[in-house]
Design a binder for these strands. Structure first.
Lengths: 254, 254
DNA sequence: CAGTGGTCTAGACCACTAT
DNA sequence: TAGTGGTCTAGACCACTGT
């Protein structure tokens, strides 16, 4: 007869982790995810091998595998046979594909525009809408970036982007004609793992018309994006304005 | 010394299947997928249990599991502990969510519009664009459906849909105020498993303006969709026109 | 060569479901 | 109670990688 109450399920050895009744592979997955979130490993770093994790947490290969493959499917890790398991990085060859599901014109070709920086500055304050989207409770400095995408000499879209400055101090001095997410990863160790987009059609106002070289009132596609890293932390909010005749948005639904 | 040449890898017992050098779990996955494609099981039907599949193909539980879970992730199967593995069906509760990533207005609520059938007819011929999209080599009869979505008395969007009539004979007599994909599944055993959408912003012409109760030239979001079933077979192509002030398109990128 | 992930085996016990 | 999927074990052998 036992008087002590024990957790129903065995727990993996994890510091600071309360006893859990969840499956072991989920406990390990969350533990690894937490380490990634804390920045203990940086993009491109190698994780411990399967066998090492088996020993460290006293688990079977199958259980460890289940945890790792879940993170691979989430896009946080990549594996290569014979080499190891690594923290995923923004893949320059996938380039604009992952978070830029665009096609220019009707061709299915690559969208590899030239990027022109229109304006960069650090704002001491921002309006309520931006603060809300960035999920900043207190007013904080914000980096504002405005860029124009030009393909074959024709403006295709432009965007206004806001990033919490405390996450990217000094970013205004970096080369911003590259993908912003690449720079944020390479220089600040920030990893965009998810984004949400809201699309609508609007009429071009004077500024949009000027930048996109179209007439006022012409239809423009507006994409509002919020980009997240681990634990739902917001890294960026952005509004993109696209010329409807040069800019298509392609999506696969499953 | 062997003079015969053997396949490098063992093969599962599958009729009509050429010898393969692919992993066993992939062979089983493809075999099950082929049976689904051939309509041997219909949406809602139970598959053989894991243990049955182990016996039938002389495989280990882990290998069978790997094949089944891949199909679950593709959305073709669902599993319930204690019950079994089933062919996935269009989930009415997910309703418009899966293939209709819309939000009406700025609210994040459900999009559950009333559907008004504007026009249904069977066409003996169709123009080149539709034939190409439906991937019909030879001219074939095509079902044309035009419907209007109304929410709270306000028209939100309307669409023009084309379906190869040979796949849905008699569908024009069905109740078309429901989700088309539900009807196609329930009455014709057709299962939409994937769709591709292309979005752009356009100006409303006279017809769009009339149907959506907006002024000519107002911005309208145009969504061109092609819907597929197994093996890349096209089930439908559709153009949806949405009122930009009542109709948002929301996407998660990962 | 040693070490990695990829595949596969042959079971075990559990929680959940329906009868 | 019998049967299902969910979890977990404790290995094996393979192909691929870099030295």
């Amino acid at each position: 007869m036992t008087t002590e109450s024990f957790p129903v399920r065995r727990n993996i050895a994890a510091l600071k982790t309360p006893l859990s009744d969840r499956p072991l592979y989920q406990q390990l997955r969350d533990r690894l995810k937490a380490e990634l979130a804390d920045g203990n490993w940086k993009p491109g770093d190698a994780l411990p091998t399967e066998r090492e994790l088996c020993q460290r947490f006293d688990l079977s290969p199958g259980t460890v595998r289940q945890a790792i493959l879940a993170l691979v499917r989430e896009g946080l890790l990549t594996r290569r046979a014979g080499k190891g398991t690594f923290v995923a990085r923004m893949d320059p060859s996938r380039g604009f594909e992952r978070f830029f599901p665009f096609r220019s014109g009707t061709s299915d070709g690559q969208f590899t525009p030239d990027i022109e920086v229109l304006d960069v500055h650090v704002m001491a304050e921002a309006d309520e809408e931006v603060l809300t989207k960035l999920d900043l409770r207190r007013p904080d400095s914000i980096l504002s970036v405005r860029r124009l995408m030009v393909q074959h000499g024709t403006p295709v879209c432009w965007h206004q982007s806001y990033i919490p400055y405390s996450l990217v101090p000094g970013m205004e001095k970096e080369d911003l004609t590259q993908q912003l997410y690449r720079t944020m990863e390479a220089k600040f160790g920030l990893h965009v793992i998810q984004a949400e987009e809201l699309l609508q059609a609007v009429e071009a106002d004077a500024e949009m018309a000027r930048l996109l070289q179209i007439s006022e009132g012409a239809p423009v596609i507006l994409i509002e994006r919020v980009a997240y890293t681990f634990r739902g932390q917001v890294l960026e909010c952005r509004k993109t304005y696209g010329r409807s005749d040069k800019f298509l948005y392609k999506i696969q639904l499953r």
